[in-house]
């Protein structure tokens, strides 16, 4: 019963529920909001929304008021005999339709104007990232090379350009806090620009149904000041650290023998697989499994040995490893920072 009461309280609190981040959780897990005005594009779209919302509310109120008056005012039944369409209420018709046309035309014109301003950023983006949609993760590329997966950093306060591709099915790249979405379509390259006004961590997801794990295809974008971003980019483009500890060296050998390298690449090593996400700086990332679980040893271990329970149907087979080998492998992967 207490549970039920708790839920009731929770539900009753929804009106006040602003979706603030749970302080204990990493911010990649925090709520997003289309209306949050955290990015230039999202900000303008949010203005469009408030225009649409106020217009629609007005229309709604007018129509419902008219309807209520019509329903509860005293009317009369048509007398027997030839039925004449009554012209005395025609003004409602003319007025209503006229207003509809005016409101809709204003909306249309407003749409043109807003599309024009959103077409391109005022300042040409200095940076282009290439995003390739995979089943069911995101390959992040820079100048033709995969530098990360499911996570990327961008400089805040300036527009960034994305070129969007897919070599499999259709996906859609959506960062609600920052901009509208754009599809990744095989054979139809697309592009998108956005700008994060403030540094922060932003959650995004795939918005086009792309198969069994469409539901768990998220990503994280971290906006940070230009200097920090450049450090990140340089690091991301660098080759992997050599394994330091004894355990890690054994782990690396297991990585190469176990077949991991068949799908994953680690730049600077023999691992050059192109099927799964690249892992060069794996342990510097916030999340695993396309921004679905935090990147901690426990999650990583579980993901390696039983990825199919965490994300049923995903392309990574659950690995058969001895407990010991698993520890070595973990040591290696945790050193890839």
């Amino acid at each position: 019963m207490a549970t039920i009461m708790m839920r009731v309280r929770q539900i009753a609190g929804i009106a006040l529920y602003l979706g603030l981040a749970n302080a204990q959780e990493a911010s990649w897990r925090s709520p997003v909001n289309v209306l949050s005005r955290k990015g230039l594009v999202a900000d303008q779209i949010s203005t469009i929304w408030w225009f649409l919302f106020s217009t629609a509310s007005l229309v709604f109120l007018v129509v419902i008021t008219l309807l209520l008056i019509a329903l509860f005012k005293k009317g009369q039944a048509v007398p027997k005999g030839p039925v004449q369409e009554n012209s005395s209420v025609r003004p409602i018709l003319y007025l209503g339709t006229g207003l509809t046309i005016i409101v809709l035309l204003i909306t249309a014109v407003y749409t043109f104007i807003s599309m024009r301003t959103l077409a391109a950023p005022s300042q040409k983006p200095a940076l282009t990232f290439e995003i390739v949609g995979k089943q069911w993760w995101w390959d992040v590329r820079y100048e033709g090379e995969s530098i990360s997966a499911n996570e990327l950093h961008i400089p805040s306060g300036e527009p960034v350009h994305f070129s969007l591709h897919s070599d499999n099915v259709i996906h859609s790249f959506w960062l609600p806090d920052l901009a509208g979405k754009r599809d990744l379509i095989p054979g139809h390259p697309n592009s998108l620009w956005l700008q994060a006004d403030e540094p922060g961590t932003y959650r995004g997801s795939c918005a086009e149904f792309c198969g069994v794990q469409h539901g768990k295809m998220n990503f994280t974008v971290i906006a940070e000041p230009r200097a920090a971003f450049e450090t990140w980019l340089e690091h991301a483009r660098a080759e992997a650290n050599a394994a330091v500890s004894e355990e890690a060296r054994v782990g690396q050998a297991i990585f190469m023998q176990q077949g991991c390298a068949g799908c994953h690449s680690i730049r600077g090593t023999a691992a050059q697989g192109e099927i799964g996400p690249e892992l060069t700086h794996l342990s510097s990332r916030l999340t695993l499994a396309a921004a679905n679980i935090p990147n901690t040893t426990g999650h990583l271990a579980a993901w390696i040995v039983d990825s199919q329970s965490i994300k049923p149907g995903n392309r990574m087979p659950s690995q058969k490893l001895s407990g010991e080998d698993l520890q070595f492998l973990l040591s290696y992967l945790m050193e890839l920072n």
Binding site: E25, P294, T296, T297, G298, H299, L300, A302
Partner: peptide, 9 residues
């Protein structure tokens, strides 16, 4: 528990 990933296994 969620952070460390106990539920994964």
């Amino acid at each position: 528990l969620k952070h460390y990933g106990c539920g994964g296994c």
